[in-house]
């Protein structure tokens, strides 16, 4: 299973998460989002880039509670809450945002 991005093949698992997270690029993110039927706004990109920074720093995808706490710290309460994140990513910050950001499924997420 794979996404086709600019002539390149990017493999993903049965749930759509990248097999090799090193293959992620913004073009890949757009492609994953299209597969999810989710048009990306600047608010989406803000969360996507935040997740990638978190991953670079800690080498894990954060649990939702940890994500909202960290977002609140960085961007304020208006953006660091479940409601806001679920409006952006209807299938959930973990299931959709991490997937589009090219991260593995968050630890502890079944």
């Amino acid at each position: 299973m794979s996404y086709q991005v600019g002539g390149k093949t990017v493999e993903h698992d049965e749930e759509g998460y990248l097999v090799d997270i090193g293959q992620w690029s913004e073009d890949v993110a757009v492609m994953i989002a299209e597969a999810e039927k989710l048009p990306l706004s600047s608010e989406h990109w803000e969360v996507i880039h935040f997740l990638r920074e978190y991953y670079t720093e800690y080498q894990i995808a954060p649990a939702i509670r940890v994500l909202t706490k960290a977002l609140t710290k960085k961007m304020g309460e208006a953006k660091g809450n479940n409601k806001y994140l679920y409006e952006l990513f209807p299938y959930g910050p973990a299931k959709q945002a991490c997937k589009i950001a090219g991260l593995p499924k968050p630890t502890g997420c079944v």
Binding site: E57, Y58, Q59, I60, P62, A63, V66, K69, A70
Partner: peptide, 11 residues
């Protein structure tokens, strides 16, 4: 994954 220990505080 030694970097991940630094995430414990946030958890």
């Amino acid at each position: 994954f030694s970097k991940t220990y630094r995430a414990l505080d946030g958890y």
